[in-house]
Design a protein around this nucleic acid. Sequence first.
DNA 1: TTAGGTCTGTCCACTTGTGCACACAGGACC
DNA 2: GGTCCTGTGTGCACAAGTGGACAGACCTAA
Lengths: 261, 261
Amino acid sequence: MDARTSNATEIDSRPTNNLLRRLSQADFALLAPHVMVENATANELLYNPGDDVQVVHFPCGPALATFVVPNEDGRDVETILVGREGAVGGIVSEGYLPAYTRICVKFGGPFARIHVSKLEAAKQRSPSLRHVFARYADCMLAQIFQSTACNAIHSIEQRTAKWMLAAMERTGDASSVPLTHEQLATLLGVGRSYASRVLQSFKAEGVLDTRRGSILVRNREGLRLRACMCNEAVKMHFEEVLRGVYPTEEGEPQLGMRSKR
Amino acid sequence: MDARTSNATEIDSRPTNNLLRRLSQADFALLAPHVMVENATANELLYNPGDDVQVVHFPCGPALATFVVPNEDGRDVETILVGREGAVGGIVSEGYLPAYTRICVKFGGPFARIHVSKLEAAKQRSPSLRHVFARYADCMLAQIFQSTACNAIHSIEQRTAKWMLAAMERTGDASSVPLTHEQLATLLGVGRSYASRVLQSFKAEGVLDTRRGSILVRNREGLRLRACMCNEAVKMHFEEVLRGVYPTEEGEPQLGMRSKR
DNA sequence: TTAGGTCTGTCCACTTGTGCACACAGGACC
DNA sequence: GGTCCTGTGTGCACAAGTGGACAGACCTAA
């Protein structure tokens, strides 16, 4: 509604990644020449364990990436989801180290990419830019900590509901998650038949519906009732540390990070 | 054996924290004036959620800290152990942010402390120092990722064995862990009676023995056989990224990080 | 329109872990 | 030397989750 500011076009042309959109114009200008947006499709691997981390990927729009911890016996575990609120690759390590986890595109979409060396050079020049990334790294850490606790004490039912909500918040899609029962089970690190049963019980309660290869959410509030509060805890930390970056149902963070005018 | 270098005394007087000992002399010199070593006792809280993180704590000797994720229903979960291989507080966030987790002294001992502002100032002046801390942050991240996966798919038996080994590697103590069954159970996020039963089965197999308030390890190799490989996976990452920082049974990292001479 | 592969719902026997209860053992303190 | 408290060992009923199996449903492609 105040899209008539002189630089609205320039701002709106930024990739739809909340982290990038939160940057001041000056900071974004440092990165802009090196940012490239490309599409990635579901299941594409951004990094494998041991890969040299050289590129930071910012999921845009409905794109979603996950960190997958491989396991000797093949039972890989998905840990955290990263959508347009964040970025993956060298966020904590500042790059040039072997990746520990696999990073996998969960839902396809555009990804903004920048070489770590360019990002680090920009951080060198702008403390405020460094600061935003340090803050995001802290939020990502919080997310993983919460995941660890969640896996330790919450039921599969709770975690299923939590995962669905987290995915929907990030993609912005109102209703459907393209996932087979098998995939959902793997992602939670549980058996397929039990995952099916949980979905079945949700279905019986009218919370969601199942299609071949996708899950439809019928009653988001019901889902929230059945989920643990882990999402909320993490969201609060995001709000405290990086106000407006975490996607919510009320809408995206507005541009113009300085709240004046 | 080459303890006759001119500055041997100065080096040996460094706190017995492997991260600090890995620093070049020049880098350590930047920190030294601001480092203070103080003892902390078990169960002391270094941070509570929401606290402003202003001090970095480096566990020395047998000291051990843990990150505890509090839970709405009071079922707190301990996540990762940090001993003399690392540090806690503002490692990822670079300080001045509200703590997300509780940080608790698990086993008492000396802690070297430095104010985040001093550490950050030193990083500003020395890229190599910054680099060491970025690398450690990456290792810590790996540790948490592995924990998340471990909690998702490994049995309580495996996790108990893993925890015992991890604690012993870090404290260097050959045999005894001062822990009640209750504490062990809480720390793993499981019921007390089941934890007792697992210990009982280990005892029956001659792997460990129980005393009132502490657990004695009888057969470390047996413990390793019963543990998951999560420790090893993390250890490998440490070795790759920060060779010699992770404590092992073979001994501590030797000083003089440049291997020449 | 049929064939074939994948996904889904459900059954079953089994293991893992929970939560409560209770007897009793080990120390610490008077 | 008794008292009291906390910690330990164990029994039981139950809940949660596993892993294999299989029939049928859905979709695609020929």
